[in-house]
Design a protein around this nucleic acid. Structure first.
Lengths: 292, 292
DNA sequence: TATTTTTTATACTTCAAGTCTAAAAAATAA
DNA sequence: TTATTTTTTAGACTTGAAGTATAAAAAATA
């Protein structure tokens, strides 16, 4: 990273950790980093952008540490997983990020929101994958469900702990406890999954903020869907999808038509097994429409 | 509630729901409620106070609804519990409160923080109690653990669902799923509990913002502790506790002494079974010290 | 009707975010 | 080295929201 940029993020990082994100003004950062206002705005458009830069370095650090922890170990070793998960919690705590994660929900900055969404999705995906490593292939279909529950438990335990205690609980203890508790759930394999297959992958697709790219992905998903519907000979429902596909691909998509068809689409697929996929597609489509 | 106050909170409530808490300026509220700035500040010292007033009415509504749902039903009926838990989630969703809960973490308003802490503690306590209703007395020792995990799972599932879908998931479905998943955990009774006995009650004690009251509670807890230590003949450790008790009760507590003893206290009890209780007491004590 | 309380309109202060500019300093090219 | 370009600086300026202050009007109460 550009040394001046680093000088700024370092200063901001110190202040955010010590005093909190919302409590730190840009002026504070300027004073701490000993730079002029113009310089700051030369590198960042806002405090939020500066925060993203910081969080990215923290992410990289966490990722490296996780790789280190796995080095030379058996990837099915539960203890490795526990300490790997704890790495991120420790990072959060060390950098006082919990408070920041809170402030983000209140911010209406779309970039920042997208950043956090992407992060969370990545983290869950990673944990799901590792659960399969540890608990075997038969875990695959439920891995996302379990990753979600595991992280939910861990965070809530930490939150509640902090309600009443001022000592810090060792993160590994929490992770280990949550995992132990959930083991009977994980082992009980014959259950119906909550989240649809590939839920997180599909989610990631819709996280792009580049509308051209998003449109491409939308078209891909629509054409996949239409193929699937063709196979199942659901011609009636397929009409809608094919229409959307054609219209989105055309030179000048007619907005009013797309809007109208999107509105009906959800109703058409209500109750079908495609309901969820449709819901994601519709969401993406509206975003693309906004950009047209 | 005073009709004018209600007029203001109603307007604010509308705006918070529609546009979000952070996005609503006080001026917006004045316009919506058709009142002058002075009137607003006549009833609330800040936007946060206004928010608390709103949340209190929502709380009451949720509480009433839960009582209704239990009317004439068997309190051990799992389905009642599920819909009772869902009540609050529906409230949150209906009033768009999730975003608000986020913004609170970023606020440095102590009253607001205390309010949320108290709310969360109450909710967990309530769920823990109800878990005992449904799963029997043998659940008592683990009820808090399970309440924490259950709420953690529920919230995380909803969060992740909202990452990728734009349809709203029926809250009862989520609650039912989480509860079903956790049943093997709940039924496996012979585990070590994570949260100490009465954790939440103890936590509630430390939520008061009235320092006099807090001091009284601190004294009560110290004297309980010293009695317990006496029974166990831990004279050495008891010296510290008894000293603190006497000093806090004295007319003019010597701050420097208290500070110094509090610092050692944690080390003295490190590793003992009192570690957690001590940690809470120390936390309270520091708050009381701040007020002296 | 007289008095007190509440409400209003408006001006004011404070504070932080962010823009703009002209000059100084530093980096780079010739 | 000198000339040119880029980066940095200091500080003035705009905007917008929070919150304070005040005197007059309106409403409630005695």
């Amino acid at each position: 990273m550009n040394p001046r940029k680093k000088q700024i993020t370092d200063a901001a990082h110190r202040l955010f950790s010590e005093n909190g994100f919302a409590q730190t003004s840009i002026q504070d950062i300027l004073d701490e980093a000993q730079i002029a206002k113009g310089t700051f705005y030369n590198y960042f458009a806002s405090k939020n952008e500066c925060l993203i830069a910081i969080l990215e370095t923290v992410n990289e650090k966490a990722e490296r540490r996780r790789i280190e922890l796995a080095q030379g170990e058996n990837k099915a070793d539960e203890n490795v997983l526990v300490s790997q998960i704890a790495v991120r919690l420790d990072m959060n705590r060390y950098h006082n990020l919990l408070a920041i994660f809170g402030s983000v929900a209140c911010s209406d900055d779309n970039d920042l929101k997208a950043f956090f969404k992407k992060n969370q999705t990545k983290e869950l995906n990673w944990i799901a994958k590792r659960l399969v490593d540890v608990f075997g292939e038969e875990e695959a279909r439920h891995a996302v469900d379990h990753a979600v529950m595991l992280t939910g438990c861990i965070h809530q335990i930490i939150r509640v702990w902090n309600l009443g205690a001022n000592t810090e609980m060792a993160t590994e203890t929490v992770v280990q406890f949550a995992l132990d508790q959930l083991k009977p759930v994980i082992r009980e394999g014959n259950k119906k999954a909550f989240f649809p297959k590939n839920w997180l992958d599909l989610t990631i697709d819709s996280l792009s903020t580049d509308y051209m790219e998003m449109k491409q992905q939308l078209i891909i998903r629509l054409s996949n869907l239409t193929k699937k519907l063709e196979k199942e000979e659901k011609a009636k429902n397929n009409e809608y999808v094919q229409f959307l596909l054609k219209e989105f691909q055309s030179e000048n998509p007619r907005l009013f038509l797309l809007e109208s068809v999107l509105l009906s689409l959800k109703h058409v697929f209500e109750g079908s097994s495609y309901e969820l996929e449709i819901s994601q597609i519709v969401k993406m489509a509206w975003q693309v429409l906004d950009s047209l």
